Amino acid sequence: MEQDTLNIDIIKSSGERVKFSLEKLRASLHRSGADNDVVNRILDKVRDELYQGISTKEIYNRAYALLKKEKRYYASKYKLKKAIYELGPTGFPFENFIAALLKYSGFNTKVGQVLEGDCVSHEIDVVANKNGNTTIVECKFHSEEGRNCNVKVPLYIASRFQDVKNQWDKKQHKTTLTQGWVVTNTRFTKDALQYGNCIGLHLLSWDYPKNDGLKDRIDRLGLYPITVSTLLTKREKQFLLTRDVVLCRDLIGDAFYLDHLGVSDVRKTKILNEIKNLCHHESR
C-alpha cells in the first residue's frame, strides 16, 4: 500500500500537480501533538481514500476530521495554517497577531503607527522596540491560499524603510532604527527571498526561515490565534477579533465575551476546556 501512494498525483491550492508525500502528511500530523499510534491510524485511513487528482484540501479535511475525533487540541494545532487565513478578510487582526508574537518575544509593540520619512509619512503596521533598537514591520496578509509575496513586496518595503530611517537618524530618538521586517502568512518567491536578504530585510513567512518560520514561532511560544478553535463559529470568531481577542490565551482572561455572544454555560465550558487544553498542552 505504501508503494502505491508514490504514484498518486495531488493538486495543490495553487493548481500545481505534485506527487503525494506520505512523509509530509506524517510530519504535519506529528506537529499536532498526536503520538505515533494516532498518526499511523490516520495515515492508514487517509491512504485508503487517495485517488488520482485528489486535492490537498480534501486530504487536509479528512485528516482534520480524524484528528478531531481523537482529541480536539490535536485538530486545533493541525488547522493552524487555515486558522491564520481566517484572521481575514482584512489584514488588521493579522497585524495584531504579529504584534502579540513579538510582545511575547520581549518586544514592546504598537500597531498602526505613522512615522515621518524624508519624503512622505508612512503608516507602519507594527513598530517594535527591544534593547534600545526599533524595528518596523510590514505585514502582508493573504486570505487565499496559493498567493505568494513576489519581489515587488520587499522592493517596496525596503524603500519605505530607507525613507523612514533617513528621517529617523536626523532626529534625536531614544532608540536606533535598526531593521525592517516583512511578514506574510503565505510564502515568498525565490526572487523576493534573494532581494530581501540582499538588501538586509528580515523576512518571515509561514515556513521561512527554516525552523524559525511563523508556524515554528507559534508552536514554540504556544500563541495560537482564536481562529484555531474547533468549537467557535465563524461569526463568534469575528466578534472576538473585532474586540482584539486574537490569541486563545486572551479568551481565557476575557471569557465574559462568550456571555455577550449568548453562549450557553455548557458550550462555554466546552470552548474554554478546548482552549485551556491547547494552551496547557503547549506549556508542558
Rank of each mutant, 00 (worst) to 15 (best):
R147D: 12
K19N: 06
K79R: 11
G253P: 01
E274M: 04
K57A: 09
K140T: 01
G213T: 08
R160F: 05
Y224R: 05
A34C: 02
D118Q: 14
I11G: 06
N148T: 12
S76W: 04
S159F: 01
V246I: 12
A65Y: 11
G132I: 03
G106Q: 07
N277M: 14
R217L: 11
D250M: 09
P154I: 09
G15F: 02
I157R: 01
N277K: 14
I226A: 05
R235C: 09
T178C: 09
L203T: 02
H30E: 12
R17D: 00
H281R: 13
D250Y: 01
V183K: 00
P89Q: 10
L203A: 10
T233D: 10
E70L: 11
A128N: 05
L102Y: 11
A100P: 04
K270P: 04
S229K: 00
S283H: 09
D207L: 01
S32W: 07
N40I: 06
L201N: 14
K268A: 08
Y60K: 12
T186Q: 09
L261G: 11
P89N: 13
Y257P: 02
E95G: 01
V137Y: 02
A100N: 10
R235K: 14
Y208K: 12
V114C: 00
D163A: 06
S14R: 08
G15A: 03
L101M: 08
K77G: 10
C149Y: 07
S264E: 11
R26C: 06
K276V: 13
W206N: 11
E86W: 03
N185F: 03
G112N: 04
T242I: 07
H281P: 06
L214M: 14
L50H: 08
K170G: 00
V263W: 08
V120F: 13
L155Y: 15
N96T: 03
F188H: 09
H281E: 15
I11F: 01
D259G: 08
S14I: 04
V46W: 07
Y51N: 07
R147Q: 13
D37E: 10
D216R: 02
I98P: 14
V38H: 02
S205Y: 09
D37P: 05
E274K: 07
Y156M: 12
A65V: 09
D250G: 07
Y74I: 12
L247T: 08
E86H: 08
A34F: 03
Y224Q: 02
G200N: 12
D259M: 01
G253E: 13
N36L: 07
I42V: 05
L232T: 10
A34Y: 00
E274A: 10
N7P: 03
D163E: 07
V246M: 00
D37A: 03
F239P: 06
N36Q: 03
Q113H: 04
S28K: 10
A65P: 11
A99T: 00
I157W: 00
T135W: 14
G91A: 14
N7C: 04
L6T: 13
Y208F: 15
K130R: 14
K24Q: 06
T233C: 08
G91V: 07
I199P: 04
E236I: 02
Y74C: 06
Y51E: 06
H30C: 11
I275H: 02
N7M: 03
A255G: 03
H280E: 15
N129Y: 13
I271W: 04
Q162S: 14
G253Q: 11
E2S: 11
N7K: 09
R72T: 15
L102N: 10
T178A: 12
E282T: 04
G33M: 06
T242H: 15
Y224M: 03
